[in-house]
Structure formats: C-alpha cells, structure tokens
C-alpha cells in the first residue's frame, strides 16, 4: 500500500474533487497549452456548475492555470493574482452532453498566441482525467508524461511516432487512438514511462500529415 494515499495529500480545502482536482485540471491545461495563459473562458458543467462557487472550484481552476499546485495557499486569492498578471478570465456554463458531473471546458489563448480547448473531469479523490483536446476525444490522466499527436487520418503515422519513441528508448505505458471521421482528423494519446526528448517532439512536428503536437511533461 501507499500510506500517503490514506494520510494525504496536503491540499487547500474544502473538497478533493471540487477544489484539489479542479486545481490539478487548471495546472494540466496550462501545461498542455505550453505557455502562460493570456485569456481563458472557464465553462463549468454539472456539479462543478451547481456547487463550484461554494467549493472554490472557480478559484482552484484559475490557480492551476496560473501554475499553482493544489496545496498552494494562494488558491483562495487566485482571481486577484490573475488580474495582477493580466490574465483575462471569464466564467460561463458549458453545454455538454453525457459529460462527467464534475467537468469543465477551458478555452485558452496563450501569451504567444497558442490556442487550445481542453475538456477535463475531476473523477474523485483529486484524480483527474483529460477528456477532449480541441474537440477530439483525448483521454489521459496526467500521471505519466503524455504525447498527443493530432494528424490527418492516414496510414503510417502511428509507426512514425512509435519508431521515434523506440529510437529514444522511451517505453509506452498506454496508447489510444481516436478520430473524428475516416480520412479526417485523428489523434494518438501515448502515455510514456519516461520523458520524451524535445528534439523528438520537434522531429514529429515536421512530419507530413502531422497537424499538432502537444506534450504533457511531468517536469
């Protein structure tokens, strides 16, 4: 057993799912964007929408987007911090179908112009799941270094990416493929046992048919 699963984590209250998990979602989303957030629409759904204010879900998500961890004592004041850093935050209601009750859709614009939409859920005990990126199913936990490649739905892309990982001696823990339609946009989500080197990511970006490469590092 892991004793810290029972005694811990250290976190800002009041709720592991609605506060700590929410902060973790914001933190993961910022990492996926790859740069500081200039503007964000925080669209809440289900229980996040109904009880989020009382649980500080709004402030926790914004804290995470600012790069604060779930145990950071500044979480209650994150809206003020965001204002100081000129991060523009708007809140609203997400129109989703069949989503997890603790879901949030984040529409982000980065300081250098990067754009990303992330749909994520807090699934209990502070554990989160990224569900969609840019409207495409992209499911992962954020507990492993994760490589996300959006590409045209053609033969050979998986082989190209996995051979790069193999050449860098990166072992794949879990891998999932999704697409919106045959011949349309496809996405591969690869959870790895170790970090993927930056030049490997750059190399994939240059491959024909690759639309976007997103990397979630644990560092």
């Amino acid at each position: 057993m892991h004793v810290l699963d029972i005694i811990g984590p250290v976190m800002v209250g009041p709720s592991s799912s609605h506060t700590a998990g929410a902060a973790r979602i914001g933190y993961a989303a910022r990492k996926l964007l790859g740069e500081d957030v200039a503007e964000v629409e925080v669209l809440l759904y289900g229980s996040f929408l109904a009880t989020g204010r009382g649980h500080g879900t709004d402030r926790a998500i914004v804290a995470g987007l600012l790069g604060l961890r779930p145990d950071d004592g500044r979480i209650p004041h994150s809206l003020e911090l965001a204002a100081e850093k000129n991060m523009k935050v708007t809140f609203g209601e997400a129109q989703l179908k069949n989503a997890h009750p603790n879901s949030v859709l984040l529409k982000m614009l980065g300081v250098n112009g990067a754009q990303l939409e992330v749909l994520a859920a807090s699934v209990g005990g502070g554990v989160i799941e990224i569900r969609e990126i840019d409207g495409l199913a992209t499911v992962f936990s954020g507990e492993y270094p994760t490589l996300i490649v959006q590409n045209e739905d053609q033969a050979g892309h998986v082989a190209v990416v996995t051979s790069m990982l193999s050449s860098q001696n990166v072992n794949i823990a879990d891998m999932r493929l999704y697409r919106d339609s045959r011949g349309g946009r496809a996405v591969m989500v690869i959870e790895c046992d170790s970090e993927v080197p930056a030049y490997g990511l750059e190399w994939i970006k240059r491959q024909p048919g690759v639309l976007k490469v997103i990397y979630y590092s644990l560092l």
């Binding site: 005694i7 811990g8 250290v10 800002v12 209250g13 009041p14 709720s15 592991s16 500080g56 402030r59």
Partner: peptide
C-alpha cells in the same frame, strides 16, 4: 478546510 485553508486529507478532506 471549509474556508479554503491548507489541510491534510486523512482519509478525505471532509
């Protein structure tokens, strides 16, 4: 915990 202080979940925040 209810006032968004820093606590240790043991086993839960509640």
């Amino acid at each position: 915990n209810a006032c968004m202080g820093r606590i240790v979940a043991a086993p839960t925040a509640g």
